[in-house]
């Protein structure tokens, strides 16, 4: 880390005008003896630093510790869990649930993202041209996003109920067959994915809409003058210009969808069997979902999930950096 306070300060607007960056005294490179203002900075950041160590680093370390020991409830109480090295990870990878959970995670995540993004983008484009009530309606779209997940998930569970759900009523009214949405292994994953798509649309809409606001109107006027219709305008103006924002929206969506537990747990608890078990659900179920908590494999699955999330996370950071550099 060679970044000195001056580097950080260079983001300030008045850099270069002597004496206007008050916190940095001349010759701020002296590392050994921090200036008084550095002490102030550390003081103000201290609560956060303590917080991060106590409530992020320590729980995460405990989590790694769990994953390399054989923790049972008894060992938890007595604190004498046996060290087993990577055995928990080996068990996880060789478990019959692993390929299913990995596949379900992929289907759930990519299925959710593809539809959330497409629908969110279509709605953002639709709301871009202001019309009567457009602001109000756009605000209404935020509602699903603000409701507690447990509320949305239980509402969907009741709507998709086999005998009494409104969805099946509509299907049978049109002459279709009753579908056991949540209780059949063929449709459980589909059902939770549909609910999750619904939950994610507002987030995509808001971010993409704000991205659209940054595209200058003249570009569209020029395209219209060149005779481009709405469809052409979308593909040759909106879509390319929105690409950086889209990339970030999708990556953030990936990171958040990987972690989803509430929705699936409330609707299906990952079942029937393992048919809607994702990695996050698997981890939750091992640790907290059954009468006999099995923390060690759960922690191993959780750490695997962190690694996957971080891969997408770093991709996100790189994209953001590149975007900042180019703007």
């Amino acid at each position: 880390m060679t970044s000195t306070p001056t580097d950080v300060g260079s983001r300030g607007t008045l850099r270069g005008t002597a004496g206007t960056t008050p916190a940095v005294p001349p010759g701020g490179r002296r590392r050994r003896t921090p200036s008084p203002s550095q002490w102030a900075a550390v003081g103000f950041a201290a609560p956060l630093l303590v917080y991060l160590v106590l409530f992020y680093a320590y729980p995460l370390w405990r989590n790694i510790d769990l994953s390399v020991h054989d923790y049972t409830i008894r060992a938890f109480v007595q604190g004498d869990a046996e060290f087993v090295g990577l055995q928990n990870y080996v068990d996880v990878f060789s478990s019959a649930t692993f390929p299913t959970a990995l596949w379900n995670t992929l289907v759930f995540t990519f299925g959710s993202i593809a539809f959330q993004f497409t629908i969110g983008l279509a709605l953002a484009v639709f709301f871009r041209s202001s019309f009567r009530l457009s602001g109000t309606l756009r605000a209404m779209f935020l509602v699903p996003w603000l409701l507690p997940l447990i509320v949305s998930a239980s509402t969907w569970a009741w709507m998709l109920n086999s005998e009494n759900g409104v969805v099946n009523s509509v299907i049978t009214a049109f002459g279709g067959e009753q579908i056991n949405w949540l209780t059949s292994p063929d449709t459980a994953l589909l059902s939770v994915t549909i609910a999750n798509i619904w939950l994610g649309i507002p987030f995509n809409l808001v971010i993409l809409y704000s991205g659209l606001q940054n595209i200058p109107g003249e570009v569209y006027e020029a395209a219209a003058l060149d005779g481009a219709g709405a469809w052409r305008q979308f593909w040759s103006v909106t879509f390319p210009l929105l690409r950086p924002v889209s990339a970030i929206t999708i990556l953030l969506g990936l990171i958040y969808t990987l972690k989803v537990v509430d929705v699936i747990w409330v609707m299906t608890t990952g079942g029937p069997g393992d048919s809607s078990t994702t990695l996050a659900i698997w981890s939750y179920r091992e640790a907290f979902g059954t009468g006999q908590p099995d923390f060690s494999p759960a922690a191993a699955v959780g750490n695997l999930l962190i690694v996957i999330a971080l891969v997408f996370g770093f991709l996100h950071l790189r994209l953001q950096h590149r975007q900042e550099a180019s703007s």
């Binding site: 970044s3 916190a23 203002s37 900075a41 630093l49 981890s283 962190i306 999330a309 996370g313």
Partner: peptide, 24 residues
């Protein structure tokens, strides 16, 4: 206040947001 190591801290905060709640 131009905290030294501010960039590292910013980066750690971004990473912190990616950690699944189940793990926490």
């Amino acid at each position: 206040l131009h905290l030294r190591g501010g960039r590292t801290l910013n980066f750690l905060l971004l990473v912190a947001q990616m950690i699944p709640a189940v793990v926490m």
